[in-house]
Nucleic acid binder design. Structure first.
Lengths: 224, 224
DNA sequence: CGTAGAAACTGACCATTAGTCATTAACTGA
DNA sequence: TCAGTTAATGACTAATGGTCAGTTTCTACG
C-alpha cells in the first residue's frame, strides 16, 4: 500500500527540511549560539516537532556536518575516478580538499566537531557512527589509491598506506584550520602566507612518500 | 606603604585559588559541562566573587589553559637550553611535546580552544592576547632554533623557518589530537598505532627539512 | 459519510545555568 | 570609634535545551 511509503517519503523530506533550517542557523551562529527556538522558527515548525525528528541539538549538528562530509567525499571520489597517475592524483586530492575548504567554509568548520569528545559526547551513538562510517569510506578511497601507488612503484613500499593517509590528512586539515582562523596573524607576526605553507607541507610530504619514479611522474605532470 | 602591596598579593593569590578550583572542575567536566556554581563551591567562594576576578567563564578557561601553555613552553625551553645540535634538538622537542601530552593530557585537551573562534569568541580580548603572546613566544623559540640550524648548515637554507615551524607544529598537534581521541579506532579499523605514525611523520618531515649534513647529525646521535 | 484510533504537531512548561547587583561584611586610616 | 572603602554574598533574571499533556490532522473501516 502506497500510503505508508508516502508517509516515509514525507518523513524523510521533513527531516531534510529541518536540516535545511538547522544548517542556516548553525552556519550563521555556530553550535553554541544557535538556539533550537530559532531553528524551529526557521523551519516553520514548533520546537517540539524538532525533537520528534532529532534527539538533540548535537544530532542536528552532526546531520548538517554529514552533508559537508558527503560533499568532500564526492569531490575526492571524482578526483580518484579520473584515474590519473597516483602522484598526480594525490596532488589533485590536495587541491580538491583546498577547493572544498574555500567553497564550503562553513561545512569545513564543522568537521572538527567529531574530533573533540567534549563536544560530541552528547550526540547519539547512532549519529556518531554514521559520521565515522562516512569518514572511513573517504579515507579508504585514499588508502586504496596509496596501495595502487605502491603496486605501480610510485609510492614507497616500506610505508603503511593507512599511516601515510593519516599523516597527509592530519597535516592538511591542521593547516587549513589555521588558514581559516589565523592566517592574518601569521602574516603580520611571521610574514608568511599559510596557503603557501600548506603547499610546502604537501610538497615535503609528497617528496618523502614517493619513490624516485613517483617524484619524476609528479614533476613531469606539474611542469605542464 | 605595605598594605596596598599586601592587598595586591592577596588579590593575585585569590586569582590563583580561583584558577585552582576552575582547573579541577574543567579537568573533570570540560568547558561546557562545568558550571560556575560548581567552581564557586570548589573555591569556597560565592559565584559573584568569581566575577570580581574573571569577566566570564571563558576567561577562566583561558586562565587555566595558560598554565598548560606555560608548562609546555618551559619544557621546550629546557630542551633548547641544552644546546645540542639542531637536528637532535628538534627530535628532543618532538619527544618533549609527546611527554607533555602524556603527563598533562588535560592541559593538552584545552589547547585547541584558541583555534576555534566559535568557542573563544566570548573570552575577553585581553585574555586572548595573553594566550597568543605566550604561544608566539614558544614558537619563536623553535624558529630561532631553526635559524641556527640554517646558519650551521643542518637545516635547508631555502626554507622559511616560520613555515617549517608551523608545519611541524601543526602536524604534531593534529596527530596527538587523534591519538588522544581516536587511537583505538585507528587500531581496530586500520591496524596502525598512531604513536608510531607520529614518529613516522616526524621522521619524514625531518628528512625533508634537514640538509644532508643535518640528517647525518641526527642519525649519528640517534644511533647511540 | 462518520467515527475511532493513530500519527503528527504544538507551545506552555520545567530545570539548568551564565551573569548581575543591591545588600552586607570586613577592613583601613584617622 | 567611626566614616569610607573594598571585598564578598546570594537571591534574582534572562536565556535556553528539552519535555509532555493536549490538540489537530490524517487514515482506515463500518
Amino acid at each position: 500500500m502506497g500510503i505508508s511509503e508516502r508517509k516515509e517519503r514525507e518523513k524523510s523530506y521533513r527531516r531534510e527540511e529541518i536540516l535545511d533550517a538547522a544548517q542556516k542557523v548553525f552556519f550563521e551562529k555556530g553550535l553554541t549560539a544557535a538556539t533550537m527556538d530559532e531553528i524551529a522558527e526557521t523551519a516553520e515548525l514548533s520546537k517540539g516537532t524538532l525533537y520528534l525528528y532529532y534527539k538533540c541539538k548535537e544530532d542536528l549538528y552532526l546531520g548538517v556536518m554529514m552533508r559537508g562530509m558527503q560533499i568532500l567525499h564526492d569531490r575526492l571520489a571524482d578526483v580518484i575516478a579520473k584515474n590519473r597517475p597516483v602522484p598526480q592524483t594525490l596532488a589533485d586530492l590536495a587541491q580538491a580538499f583546498f577547493d572544498f575548504f574555500n567553497a564550503h567554509r562553513n561545512y569545513f568548520r564543522m568537521l572538527h566537531f567529531l574530533q573533540s569528545p567534549q563536544l560530541h559526547k552528547q550526540a547519539t551513538e547512532e549519529m556518531q557512527t554514521n559520521c565515522r562510517t562516512l569518514n572511513h569510506q573517504t579515507w579508504e578511497l585514499v588508502i586504496d589509491l596509496l596501495r595502487r601507488g605502491i603496486r605501480d612503484g610510485s609510492v614507497r613500499p616500506d610505508l603503511n598506506p593507512a599511516e601515510v593517509l593519516v599523516i597527509l590528512w592530519s597535516s592538511a586539515t591542521a593547516l587549513l584550520l589555521r588558514i581559516d582562523s589565523e592566517d592574518d596573524r601569521w602574516h603580520e607576526r611571521f610574514h608568511i602566507d599559510l596557503v603557501q605553507t600548506l603547499n610546502l607541507s604537501n610538497a615535503l610530504l609528497f617528496g618523502a612518500i614517493f619513490t624516485e619514479q613517483g617524484r619524476r611522474q609528479l614533476a613531469e605532470s606539474s611542469v605542464l
